[in-house]
């Protein structure tokens, strides 16, 4: 019954829905939790406020339309989530700027918790399980694929969404294992779209404890290397290691 009630595309808006888009769409209130019961969740995350600039309005509208089509094509049992913060009538793009309707703050919470650099977004994150929004950082869902869309052209994004639709429909939750996401062999959104130029942004599967420990070690060693300064002057040989500076 739940599958009939909740659409493939879940739009989160603040109040009563006024959207009159296809019947598979059921807009939800702004602070309403992400519904349970789906086989997969595809989140469109806009964490970079630059995307809310009026000059990006056309691109964003185009992206939204593509994502809307994607959400409808993956079926009723798989959710596609785009966060809105206000009432969104159809044709909103003619009346309002994206900044007025898109809930960037909510997306930012996801980006922060999942360590997604805002500058490289927007992101399309597909998860096999519903993320716990109240505890995003520690409760990272098992089976997660991240796609950076920032460096992709509109045609590449279309290809990506097309192939992602194929993967979700044909392989169901095996998306994170195959056909394009192999553990330890990152695959790019661009590669998925048939373009090998852009480097990858995908993380797959549950992160094992040893991998997390290794990542922490890397962080500690990296921070230590950035914190110390070292100078060696032994006559003919001299070396000077200075603390690293953050580049803008």
């Amino acid at each position: 019954m739940l599958k009939l009630l909740f659409p493939a595309l879940v739009l989160a808006v603040s109040a009563t829905p006024v959207l009159s888009i296809p019947q598979t769409v059921l807009p939800l209130g702004n602070k309403l939790p992400i519904p349970s019961g789906y086989k997969s969740y595809s989140f469109f995350l806009i964490c970079n406020p630059e995307w809310l600039d009026p000059s990006k309005s056309a691109d964003l509208t185009d992206l939204y339309n593509k994502f809307l089509a994607f959400g409808r094509s993956i079926g009723d049992d798989q959710a596609a989530v785009w966060f809105w913060k206000t009432q969104v009538p159809q044709g909103w793009e003619k009346q309002k700027s994206p900044a007025d309707v898109i809930d960037v703050e909510r997306s930012i919470k996801f980006c922060r918790a999942w360590n997604l650099a805002p500058s490289e977004g927007p992101y399309l994150v597909v998860t096999a399980a519903k993320p716990d929004e109240s505890n995003l950082a520690t409760a990272i869902p098992d089976g997660r694929a991240e796609f950076k869309l920032g460096g992709l052209k509109a045609t590449e994004i279309s290809k990506l969404l097309g192939r992602l639709t194929d993967a979700l429909l044909l392989h169901k939750t095996e998306l994170w294992v195959s056909p394009f996401a192999e553990m330890g062999k990152p695959t790019s959104a661009a590669a998925l779209a048939g373009d090998q130029r852009v480097t990858p942004a995908i993380s797959v599967g549950a992160t094992a404890l040893w991998v997390r420990l290794l990542a922490v070690t890397q962080e500690i060693v990296g921070e230590f290397g950035c914190a110390v300064s070292f100078k060696l002057d032994a006559g003919p040989v001299s070396a000077d290691v200075k603390p690293c500076k953050n580049t803008p």
Binding site: G184, L214, A215
Partner: peptide, 21 residues
């Protein structure tokens, strides 16, 4: 080895990072 270990995120290739470290 340490440079390789630090240069890329661990999650990209955990096995290689473990080997380098």
């Amino acid at each position: 080895s340490l440079t390789h270990f630090l240069s890329t995120p661990v999650k990209n290739s955990p096995g290689q990072h473990l080997l380098s470290f």
